[in-house]
Design a binder for these strands. Structure first.
Lengths: 338, 338
DNA sequence: TGATTACCTGTGCACGTTCACAGGCTGTGA
DNA sequence: TCACAGCCTGTGAACGTGCACAGGTAATCA
């Protein structure tokens, strides 16, 4: 008897049918829901599946159904952003687990260079995935245009600027979060509150600035606003600019924890104490925030819930449901920095 | 004329053949290398492909070839490790890009819980991926046993303990790196050098400790050794233990940057200056190291080269080549902490 | 009794591709 | 003139699955 793994052919639905004494069709029915199958037949098939170690061939299945049983996790951010910010890892892992529970898989697609973007458009357009989880979109992204045009089910993390009504989205309430942070800083007696924004072509950059502005009202002063790109370096540079321009500031709201980390470094180097001289607030509550010195007061984003909701919504859209825009509450997390 | 994207059927190889005035076989030959095809036929086919916007159906192709044209990125670490350590993101992105260049895709597989491990074993065993990129293996991992048993091409990051000769691996020279760090600390005049190790069932945990021990020689003293699990929390706890046990230490080598970050926090809290009172060295040179305060002296792992090499080796193994063990040089990066 | 219904099962076809094979054409050497 | 090789092309058969359909049985109803 030859039972070596290498020599044995992978069992097909025919082998199962033969072992169970039924036809291919019956086996197929048992696998896909099992309606209209007699209890005896079902049990025989289930035994045969266990005995043969049968596992459906996904390629054959996809060929006939036109479904790939997988979603794409589409990454459009430039490389350097991923080196220090754990945000994306958390989303990625959450999405992978949510899919694995449903017997689906996650395909990682990187669209950094124009060439990669073209490949991604082709790949997705060819129907190799059922839908796309879009991470951190920039305004007027032509890739997103392509997805919309080709009718690819898409759900974005954060409201995609310029495409808000064309694709689904799951996001934290950016404005409310920013307002909560500013309100908190004010409640601590801070009066000259600066901000380091994210890129203004991203929802996080634009909406957190709007929240900051709305909460400040008449107290809003452009001199206290600088723009960053979410990196620690840009946070440091922004902090330097702010201190040169407005040395009297007594608080800073950075639109990401990573930029807050950069700002903290500059403050320390300049001999300013946190929070005594300058209070610092961040946004994201990524793993980073709690490990900074001092631990960072920030706005919590429920990344695990966001990824789970993105997957759920995308699968609904794939199934024919209309897309929607879900907003999750942003919660202030008080630590030592403010 | 109906040219709406929704109404138009995706072009198949038959459409291309018809448009080019040749047969399916000729089109297939042009796509796959193009040998034994006349220049005129090839040109006609290429024009037809461009005109129809044809893209091969991967499922149909995989069904007949038995190749999936994809690799799995297999994650076995528990969840919490990914929140702060960017190491895995860098490897993941590098692998995805290396594959995308070859027209292949990367599938993310998570094997945290026993249930997930079973699913992964089934999925991979069913031939849904051509090979597995194994990240951070633990000694005597039964999942790795399964992969080996089923003859799945596998390449690990770091020499897999207990399976060193059964699967391929790409790793940094852990021992040399640890020795370089200890040698550097000694050259700075440090004499009581402690270490916080990684988990001893991982190659990084075991081999970096061996390097530390080898470099210290007779000066090795167990009192200066504590064990962590790569997290910042374990680094902090380890530092506390060390200071309680051996308050006279003048240097610490943490087996990961994240643990070093935890150690830095404890040192600061206890009023010890870095590097004046205690020098601190890390390992990995992940994005984290440069942003710490003070910036961390550490051992650089060339993660981009590692991921590229893992992909290259795995594809060789898939193609029938024997697996091997590639070691990359570990380089000391001097910053302010030591 | 005959018609209708509800349930269960098996069979043929299609999905889009690659591969093996057969065969055509052209040129070369015996 | 025939055999043979080298190049190029087309065709049929697979790959493993889901789905539509036909057909069977048993129970219910007019």
């Amino acid at each position: 008897m030859d039972t070596t793994a290498a020599a044995r052919r992978r069992p097909t639905i025919r082998d199962v049918a033969a072992a169970a004494g039924v036809s291919r069709g019956t086996v197929s029915r048992v696998i896909n829901g099992g309606h209209w199958v007699s209890p005896e037949a079902r049990e025989a098939v289930e035994r045969a599946i266990a005995a043969t170690g049968y596992r459906a061939n996904q390629h054959a299945r996809s060929l006939v159904t036109g479904r790939s049983n997988s979603l794409a996790f589409l990454l459009t951010e430039p490389h350097h952003l991923l080196f220090a910010d754990p945000t994306f890892s958390i989303l990625l892992r959450g999405a992978a687990e949510a899919l694995s529970e449903r017997g689906m898989t996650l395909i990682l697609l990187v669209a950094g260079t124009p060439e990669e973007r073209e490949n991604v458009a082709q790949y997705v357009g060819a129907g190799h995935v059922d839908g796309v989880l879009l991470i951190s979109s920039h305004a007027d992204d032509p890739l997103l245009d392509t997805l919309v045009e080709q009718g690819i089910p898409t759900v974005a993390c954060g409201i995609p600027l310029g495409h808000a009504d064309q694709v689904g989205s799951v996001s934290v309430d950016e404005q409310a979060g920013a307002r909560a942070m500013v309100a908190h800083l004010r409640s601590q007696g801070r009066r000259r509150i600066a901000t380091i924004t994210g890129p203004l072509d991203t929802p996080g950059g634009r909406l957190r600035l709007e929240g900051y502005r709305a909460e400040l009202g008449d107290a809003y002063d452009e001199r206290y606003v600088v723009h960053g790109d979410y990196t620690a370096e840009s946070g440091a540079a922004g902090m330097d600019t702010l201190l040169d321009r407005a040395p009297d500031l007594d608080a800073v709201f950075a639109a990401s924890d990573l930029m807050a980390a950069g700002a903290l470094g500059v403050l320390r180097r300049r001999g300013l104490r946190v929070p005594e001289d300058v209070a610092v607030g961040g946004f994201d509550d990524s793993g980073l925030a709690a490990t900074l010195d001092p631990p960072l007061t920030t706005i919590h984003q429920p990344f695990d819930r966001i990824s789970a909701e993105m997957v759920a919504m995308l699968l609904d859209v794939v199934g024919g449901a209309p897309h929607s825009a879900v907003t999750m509450p942003a919660e202030l997390v008080r630590r030592a920095s403010a």
